[in-house]
Design a protein around this nucleic acid. Sequence first.
RNA 1: GGGCCGUUAGCUCAGUAGGUAGAGCACCGGACUUUUAAUCCGGGUGUCGCAGGUUCGAUUCCUGCACGGCUCACCA
Length: 485
Amino acid sequence: MEVAAHEKLEKIQELKNLGVKPYNGRFEKTHTVSAIRTGEASLVASGERVRTAGRLMAIRRHGRALFADLQDHTGRIQIYVKRDVLGDDRFAVFRAIDVGDLVGVEGEVFRTHAGELTVLVRDFVFLGKCLHPLPEKWHGLKDVEVRYRKRYLDLIMNPEVREIFLLRSRLIREIRAFLDARGFIEVETPMMQVVPGGALARPFKTFHNALGMELYLRIAPELFLKRLVVGGFEKVYEINRNFRNEGISVRHNPEFTMLELYEAYGNYETMMRLCEELIASVVFKLFGTYTVTYQGMTIDFTPPWKRIVLPEVLYEKTGVDVLEDPLDVIREKVRALGMAFDENWDRGKFVNELLERFVQPELVHPTFVLDYPVEISPLAKAKEDDPRLAERFELFIGREEIGNAYSELNDPFEQRKRFEEQARKKAKGDLEAHSIDEDYIEALEYGMPPTGGLGIGIDRLVMLLTNVSSIREVILFPLLRPVGD
RNA sequence: GGGCCGUUAGCUCAGUAGGUAGAGCACCGGACUUUUAAUCCGGGUGUCGCAGGUUCGAUUCCUGCACGGCUCACCA
């Protein structure tokens, strides 16, 4: 135990000497703090007693009385503790309570001369000792590393952090409500997979002892959700974690949360309409407006959203015709644009890089970018009128990629060809190439309806809606290196 | 993984052109029954991230390491 806690241990002894158990007790609340505020008029008029509980965030002692600020998950309220109300013995007990301790109080609600809504404490129960001093009341806890490592302290001290995670919770609840209302069913598919698929990414590897086999943490639930579509679940979704063994940055955490949904008999058109309706309606539910400010940008979510065709917009912005230009011509033009590139980049890689460099910075308002090259979309159906392109779109908002969707490839023969192409890439050392999943092909062989699929990065959506620039601010416990001794 | 920056009291931060360090809040003791960054009086509680090096002497200069932030690379 640290030195800092030493005096607190003496406080525990003092409490015990006064007959108070430092960790026992229970308490039934009649009101949360916000309920007291909401019900102020009738509570003050009636003199009704309320019972509420929380953590003491500040204590102002005045000899034979004291004021304290009690915080629960809904807010803070002042309490007033007087010796002539409690009696000498009980008041002495309260005097032994520290900032950070947990208490339950009972009393009536009034306003002080200064106009502060206050609970006059008639009785109280000690509910838990805090052995460490809380961070400073005025500046709070600022140290980013400590905030992430001790998120509980961050949540105690920083109400705006609490708000971020409350909003995250409400957002996910609204998404579920939206999808449930449209007949989607929520499912859970394997996190541990024998063949990691559904995305182009490097997986985490683990090992099952009893079965004696390697397993992978999933990089996406896609192939399992589509097996369910084959099985007759025509509208399914899953909101859960994906794991990708890649670099960490302000927009990447090794585990992150995705919404994936599939709708049988739809396609990427269907998904565009569903996507804008889903996000726009959830934004409106949360904020009562379609306008959100993100990092200085004003983002308008009012549907319908802008659609741009990727090969066309790339040609407009860069003069590169990613479909017709031979690879060496593309290289020549990209060189002329002054952009660095690698000699082994293929067409798909150039598309991604040009998009990121020349188009993405302008995509502030929600924008669907349509028609990606087939070679970087191995699970998507090709366009009828141009087999080089997939019926696929990505959604950009606030210059960030938020979603990805396509008409699902349901032709098992074509899927096998695509997998084999990926296998060739993998053989050439592409660590992110898709694995061949024979079991999935067999599922397709039973017949999958034409289907639209959509993925939305929940963490990034929360970032947009809470105006934070780091993904760690929207993940309660982001991955950090352990601190050494 | 590369580059840049950071790490000093429980917290937020100063500081030492090399002589083992300060402020506010918190905390401890005292006064105070409507305060609210309460106030008033008294008290500094520290491995200056870790390990080496240079030096009579290192928190300060040098090197390495750890952790974090930003950024590039990779990706969603």
